[in-house]
Design a protein around this nucleic acid. Sequence first.
DNA 1: TGTCTCATTTACATCGATGTAAATTTGATG
DNA 2: CATCAAATTTACATCGATGTAAATGAGACA
Lengths: 354, 354
Amino acid sequence: MARSARGAATMQDVAALAGVSVKTVSNVLSGYEHVSAKMRERVMGAVGELDYEINVSARNLRVGSTRVLGLAVPELSQAYFAELADAVIRAAGARGYTVLIEQTIVDRSLEISAVAAMRRHSIDGLIYSPLAIGPGDVEQLDVDFPLVVLGERVEGSRADHVTMSNVQAMKAATLHVLSLGRRRVAVIGAQPDGPVGTAASRLRGYTEALADYGIEQDPDLIITAALWHRTYGVEAMERLLASGVPFDAVVCFNDALALGALRALHKHGRRIPEDVAVVGFDDIEDSAYSTPSLTTVSPRRDEIAQKAIDILIDRIEGPDTRLAPLHVETGYELIERESSAGVRVEREAAGISS
Amino acid sequence: MARSARGAATMQDVAALAGVSVKTVSNVLSGYEHVSAKMRERVMGAVGELDYEINVSARNLRVGSTRVLGLAVPELSQAYFAELADAVIRAAGARGYTVLIEQTIVDRSLEISAVAAMRRHSIDGLIYSPLAIGPGDVEQLDVDFPLVVLGERVEGSRADHVTMSNVQAMKAATLHVLSLGRRRVAVIGAQPDGPVGTAASRLRGYTEALADYGIEQDPDLIITAALWHRTYGVEAMERLLASGVPFDAVVCFNDALALGALRALHKHGRRIPEDVAVVGFDDIEDSAYSTPSLTTVSPRRDEIAQKAIDILIDRIEGPDTRLAPLHVETGYELIERESSAGVRVEREAAGISS
DNA sequence: TGTCTCATTTACATCGATGTAAATTTGATG
DNA sequence: CATCAAATTTACATCGATGTAAATGAGACA
């Protein structure tokens, strides 16, 4: 019998056909160096003849790892996370790992514990990109497998963190519109529940930029958005417009909000960038093709993905000694496009200290 | 010793702590009905105490399946595929399966064989959404595990297919602009290599619609696009504009192309929809928020995902008898938005047979 | 040719779970 | 209380691969 009665061929079958031991087949396939050329050829011939493919479950059981990493994101339908997933999959693939994606928003409103969700699967480590995470979630991050969190470091967490320089990036975005002479700069995306995580850092960047120009912060220009979706961007801008508070620029905490805001401004006849300059954050692909195209902060997703993968795999493959949690900051880039560029508002005394 | 020296607890450890056999623990965990309440409680206590989690690799090895499905898409960074993946993950999750996503475009230009790529992983079945697939690819689809292809049926393929009614949908889209009085309808997205797969069907829908109105097809209005990306939409529209051929509507083979076209039209000062009506295809999220918002054909992604998952899992769990390949068509919906709506072009004799 | 060394190949146990079938307990009945 | 059937629980083999250590083979050298 050339192969098992039913189903795929096993190493057993290959060994029998090649007339060698099972271990020799294993050696050949795993690239063990002390295998004679003759043997290798004989085994590979049998492998080809039987269309043999290794049984991954059996190998995983034996070696105790799966070479599968988890990636937990809120929803793939949000462009930022889809593009992030793309980058993570590529970075992982280059190091011989596969990525299993878990969506943490299942019922469209509630974020579930990614970590708990991943336990069902056998993964070697997890990259977790939470929507928002606060100090209360520390214990959720205290797990017994390698975990890299994308986003602001949580106080007391033992997990590794990779995050872009949110404060500086948002400060740069805000300084950009200030440098164009705008002085009434609104911001969209503050969290209703108070400042935590990413939103807090970005808000801080905004505040610091205003301070640099000696401008006092106007609470009426700080608009909240419960979720960073386009719909909420539309809704937030509608609120701002309805309030009647004057403004000549908006910096948004992500591109989806900005695109929504763009839409609302357009609907209400505000010219962009003449009347209002708009800046987003994330540099998702749409932003380059919107009308007008969107000025935004690019977070260098590839760099984030690469760093996260490297740290995670080093933890997985490295020695057991538990080093201190890492906290890596990645760079950013301000991409100037039509929604802000080209139109400088002249003021009596443009520049610092208006 | 309460548990293995190093690493996670095993069923062995749980059994020892609870003072029962390993099989009883297995029975409790797998919900076997003939287990006394007392036993169940005792075992679950031990499970909790040891933080026991089942070893998925061992279980998979024993039962011979993994409850993991593959989903092969070109790139997650394309919104359509990200939204599709979202839908597939949800549908699979509802039936207790996990989804492993494989990107078939790795070097940004060449599509690799998804099926070959999946062989590395241990999946129970595969959903394959190819970019384009022609008759030459039949053997690629002739595999020995359950496979559902999303897209036009390939002649001679033994795989199951789930596809939307491309011809009818595109016909409806074209009829829509014709009903607005437009008579010079361009199309963007034809394949340079000749008509195959999805592009062929959509082109046919366009042709049929023109025929219904007794309009002769003008080859100058059929614009090719090698890839259905925004950039190619921009480039295709630039070509059309440069050609000087008059047109008052464009139907695009997907939303990305349409958004690119929108952008190019805007740049060249054409008013939408006054001068040119634009229609897309796919109903990705951006389309509702572009300026102007995009009229498009919604393919009911949830329905596609659900059908594909149901067929695939039925094949996996069903009896071995190989039924004839299934070919399921899913519905569509024309979503009218700003890029076409509201502006009717009056003609001497608007209506059938101009 | 005999002996020793180093390179290859092999036998066997093992990873952690589940299916099979047998052993044991439980409870009903005469 | 003995007997039998049904309900529970258990022992053991097994899924398909790899690590360990021992067995075998091939040269090298005296």
